[in-house]
Design a protein around this nucleic acid. Sequence first.
DNA 1: TTTT
DNA 2: TTTT
Lengths: 172, 172, 172, 172
Amino acid sequence: MAGVNRVILIGNLGADPAELRYMPSGDAVLNVTLATTETWKDRATGEKRERTEWHKIVFIGKTAEIVKQYLHKGSQIYVEGKLRTRKWQTPEGQDRYTTEVVVDSFGTMQMLGGRQEQPSSGSSVPFDEEAHYQGQGRPAGRPQTAPAPAPSSSAPASNYGGSSTYDDDIPF
Amino acid sequence: MAGVNRVILIGNLGADPAELRYMPSGDAVLNVTLATTETWKDRATGEKRERTEWHKIVFIGKTAEIVKQYLHKGSQIYVEGKLRTRKWQTPEGQDRYTTEVVVDSFGTMQMLGGRQEQPSSGSSVPFDEEAHYQGQGRPAGRPQTAPAPAPSSSAPASNYGGSSTYDDDIPF
Amino acid sequence: MAGVNRVILIGNLGADPAELRYMPSGDAVLNVTLATTETWKDRATGEKRERTEWHKIVFIGKTAEIVKQYLHKGSQIYVEGKLRTRKWQTPEGQDRYTTEVVVDSFGTMQMLGGRQEQPSSGSSVPFDEEAHYQGQGRPAGRPQTAPAPAPSSSAPASNYGGSSTYDDDIPF
Amino acid sequence: MAGVNRVILIGNLGADPAELRYMPSGDAVLNVTLATTETWKDRATGEKRERTEWHKIVFIGKTAEIVKQYLHKGSQIYVEGKLRTRKWQTPEGQDRYTTEVVVDSFGTMQMLGGRQEQPSSGSSVPFDEEAHYQGQGRPAGRPQTAPAPAPSSSAPASNYGGSSTYDDDIPF
DNA sequence: TTTT
DNA sequence: TTTT
């Protein structure tokens, strides 16, 4: 019965985030690709070598909005999520499977790199954080690594209902 | 500004859980010791060796109640939490520091071992999980490794919103 | 340049391990499927719900041999590995991608559940763990969760050197 | 018997690394303090709050040398290690306990932040990474996120000898 | 003080 | 003592 499904990645966005999509529940969804590079030295030749792995990341909820707003191609992030393999079909009706790392309210996203990221100019994120959060926030009295104007997100993107004052100020 | 503080342990309880204590906020608090054992073979002698590390775990909120109710000396668990070092004083006024692994609503506890654990007989946990959960739970439509009758707990809905008297009240 | 790619799972084997395969380097390779189940209570209906995720795990090296020898359908394990997406082609020449969790010498496998597992009867693993270990082990004086007679494996000393024909030889 | 003891931190060095020390085995040892900061917004007051946790980190082996050479006060790093509580005595003979995060060859250290770190000027680390690595590195044929010119280190500092053909062909 |  |  016990089950643990956890992924931890540090890498860089392969491209600017695409447009936000929304689930029927109202939660935002955003897909990005993340590159994690490992490097080592070839023992035989002494050469430095590296291998890059590309991951499909799916941000759900508040975090999706933060990613859209603050991150761009090349941004370095820390991500905690879980594995999920989706089955889908080609237009020809063939089954296909895609494995993604889902970062929802049980996951975490942290921006790395120090330098202050700027919100994407011309951001098309017509998102009323205020209202959205109200309905879904974590319960009152819950600490949360909430960064507010700071572009970082820890266990956000979810509802855990709360005091109205909480959500008013914290955009995720 | 980014910060990650995460501890993952699998080990066995060193003793039956003590009594639950409560914070002013109403959140339950429970301390246990957890042993993690690593084994290896001494390369020189070929002998099998092992080393046991003892960890002070502090469960806060719903998880504390589950631990109290279902776990006992020897129970094997998986735990996700964060490090916290508390300063306290001896009766003589000397400073002391104790490092603990805090498992609150952002952490996780999973019972391992398969065999169905029995609730502690004579349990003094007058706790209506259902009602409690309903009132503070994560938002609808969100999966959660909810404990309820099941002796497992993942990011349960608990508060530990904090009064400034936290440390004063809880002499771990 | 920094990169972290880490997966942590606790789940149960979906079937007995298949046969060991070997890379040109001599390293064993073993594929298994692992189910991680998450349970939660539907907030709206109050019903208990669960979702099982199936993961493709690839054990490489010493750990592969231990898994083959000690684990079977239903065995509960803890696994630490990394994500890797492989590209392969159908007989028709179409590209396909499969994401796996690779557990090599940088990963870890721990058996859970307490009850003593028995080596698979009729095990065809003619493997001298002792000798193997001696020759390739980590440096003296270094602890290591050595497997040997003990059915546990943490970053064991294994190779998985390979040839360019890796994918060809190993039809996961 | 299973045991997992793992700590994952992202934070900043509180000070420049002190001098390297060496164990009888020849392994370098280096202690640093690392700050991890979590921020959240106070639900009652709406104020942004933060709490910083200070961790005692002990780097052992190759990683210790890399930290000494490349990191300084304020450097942001990712660290994977394990918890260890040491008992020691005051001059008066009183027992004291200190909990540290040990980052040895089973752990990992990654520099974050992007900006190219400069080796400490006037570095007193007369360390020939190349030669040193050869002598103590992981065994041939094993990939390793080798640091060398690159200021990153993943599970290095250990041997685990292997096939010489490994690195040539398989980049993972 | 656990567990194997 | 870091960082934002």
